[in-house]
């Protein structure tokens, strides 16, 4: 579904991604691990097309189509969705307004869906509030997912959906991610693919993932079974990865 080829990206003349290669097939979910500042968010933002992340070389293919030069909204309308790690607040624009926009832009607005989706993430009380303004950490995470429910994208990128989410909410978050990724179906019948960033890996207890990748200094240095990778990081730290590189 998505293919990142030899991607090198800089922001304000600082190189944040170096020769990144990543392929995610339809039906698959990949976990992206890596220390703070290693470039995980940068990769997601480059895939969605934030212009500050300048592609120096390489390309991004979505369903076989080169999207490297498309605008953010063109990519969104093609079916790429993202839950941001730290989305901005927008004054006067209600969460409800955002849900309407998400649905409309994917060609299917149904008023009654708003409540149905909000129910799934227990976010009724945020619908009439300005988006992200004064939202708690956990509310932001759920509100990002709520927007994805409304958008129903094919390729779903989640930037730390489990950070700062309480034990009850993570249950809801896990359920919704499974729904978005059509986890109830068998892999080859799914029409979705996912890329999830996590640090602690809590989300792995709720969502089955196929593969994990570790990013270090802007490069994906290895991949493997996500739980094994997490276990290695837990026991040996990221130094272990560095050693492994040698």
């Amino acid at each position: 579904m998505i293919e990142v080829k030899n991607l090198t990206v800089s922001i304000e003349d600082k190189r944040v991604l170096k020769d990144v290669n990543l392929h995610i097939a339809q039906g698959e979910t990949i976990v992206l691990l890596g220390p703070n500042g290693s470039g995980k968010t940068s990769l997601l933002k480059t895939i969605i097309g934030i212009p500050e992340y300048k592609v120096e070389s390489g390309m991004i293919l979505f369903s076989g189509k080169d999207i490297t030069k498309l605008t953010i909204d063109e990519r969104a309308r093609l079916g790429i969705g993202i839950a941001f790690q730290r989305p901005p607040a927008v004054r006067g624009v209600k969460l409800k307004d955002m849900l309407r926009i998400c649905m409309e832009k994917r060609g299917d607005f149904k008023e009654e869906k708003i409540n149905e989706f909000a129910q799934k993430l227990n976010l009724f009380n945020c619908l009439d509030r300005d988006i992200n303004l004064g939202f708690s950490g956990g509310e932001i995470k759920r509100s990002e997912l709520l927007q994805l429910l409304a958008q129903n994208p094919d390729f779903i990128m989640l930037d730390e959906p489990d950070s700062g989410v309480d034990l009850v909410s993570i249950n809801l978050v896990g359920k919704v991610i499974n729904e978005l990724l059509e986890k109830e179906k068998i892999a080859r019948e799914r029409t979705k693919a996912g890329l999830i960033i996590t640090h602690a890996g809590f989300i792995l207890d709720y969502v089955n993932t196929d593969r994990g990748c570790i990013m270090l200094n802007g490069t994906i240095i290895c991949s493997g079974n996500p739980r094994d990778l997490l276990e290695d990081i837990r026991s040996k730290g990221y130094e272990g990865c560095i050693r492994c590189l040698r």
């Binding site: 934030i50 605008t71 953010i72 969104a76 941001f84 927008v90 624009v93 926009i101 832009k105 958008q151």
Partner: peptide, 16 residues
């Protein structure tokens, strides 16, 4: 950019 990631083009996003 946030609104664009939800599918609005930049003029629509500005107007919202």
């Amino acid at each position: 950019q946030y609104l664009m990631a939800r599918g609005l083009n930049s003029e629509e996003a500005t107007s919202v």
